[in-house]
């Protein structure tokens, strides 16, 4: 309070000397530069996937689809893609099955140790994947489990659970409390309320977080690195190819991966938007 009084008694400061238009211009330039920083490299990757030289340098020498043709003839790569789909699908299903009830519990109930429960649930999002990967590797090793795609699935579900919890919990918090109370007043028990009232209302958050978990699992390296056996997922396959340096084939896979991400982003945007409009 004293602070404010002091500054008030001083002569009134002139307003910011830069005119508003110029400041806005600077901000717009800055925002464009930042977006250019984010998207230029992606554009370069895509351009060079169509360039008919093995060297990724200007000037472009000519258009080709050869790199894409090599991809579709590469059996190891195709198998890796299949493995990635398998892992990502199972991980997403698991993360949803555990994450939704966990978010519900955080939202609805008070219980001892709730703060700790929340902290542990959210921990893997900030915890480097390598820690999750290694501790689970040690655990599986101690138990005498063999490493295979299923151990990878368990690792991914653990690492990505937090994504579901955060998004579903945020949606639950925004739901009007009265919906659940009304259901309760009408005699529905907790399970019935969850199934018939809550679940339909958080559907879009579930779909959105599910798609994000799918993408992140499809792309996961640090956990997969430690938990996979002989089978490679797509990113692991690409990672091992990258040891041999920069190649146009990687650019072609990359371009397809980006295309795949764009499709999923659009799908997520579409699926999570539709119910909002109706309201």
């Amino acid at each position: 309070m004293a602070d404010i009084a002091l500054t008030r008694s001083k002569p009134r400061k002139p307003p910011l000397s830069i005119p508003k238009g110029a400041a806005d211009g600077a901000f717009i330039t800055y925002a464009s530069l930042l977006l250019a920083f984010l998207y230029m490299p992606v554009a370069i990757l895509i351009i060079f996937s169509f360039n008919d030289s093995r060297v990724l340098a200007w000037p472009l020498s000519g258009f080709t689809l050869d790199w894409y043709r090599t991809l579709f003839a590469n059996a190891d790569l195709l198998e890796a893609v299949g493995n990635s789909f398998y892992v990502a699908t199972l991980s997403t299903a698991l993360a949803l099955c555990i994450g939704i009830p966990a978010a519900m519990a955080l939202h609805r109930f008070a219980f001892p140790g709730k703060a700790l429960f929340r902290r542990l649930l959210l921990l893997p999002i900030a915890l480097p994947g390598i820690v999750t990967g290694i501790s689970m590797l040690n655990f599986f090793n101690l138990m005498g489990f063999n490493l295979n795609l299923h151990t990878v699935v368990l690792g991914h579900a653990t690492a990505l659970l937090a994504v579901v919890v955060i998004q579903v919990f945020a949606r639950l918090q925004r739901l009007p409390r009265s919906l659940e109370e009304a259901s309760s007043d009408l005699g529905a028990n907790a399970l019935a309320t969850f199934w018939y009232v809550t679940l339909p209302n958080i559907k879009t958050a579930i779909v959105g977080s599910g798609l994000l978990v799918f993408v992140l699992s499809f792309d996961e390296i640090p956990v997969t690195f430690f938990l996979t056996g002989r089978d490679n997922t797509l990113p692991m396959y690409i990672y091992s190819t990258m040891r041999r340096g920069v190649t146009p084939e990687i650019n072609a896979v990359g371009t397809l991966l980006i295309l795949f991400s764009v499709v999923l982003i659009l799908l997520a945007a579409f699926l999570t938007r539709a119910p909002g409009r109706k309201r």
């Binding site: 490299p41 792309d219 990113p235 991400s261």
Partner: peptide
């Protein structure tokens, strides 16, 4: 949403 591995690789190229 775009592969994290890919985004690191971009800078290598």
């Amino acid at each position: 949403w775009v592969s994290y591995l890919l985004r690191a690789y971009l800078w290598k190229t």
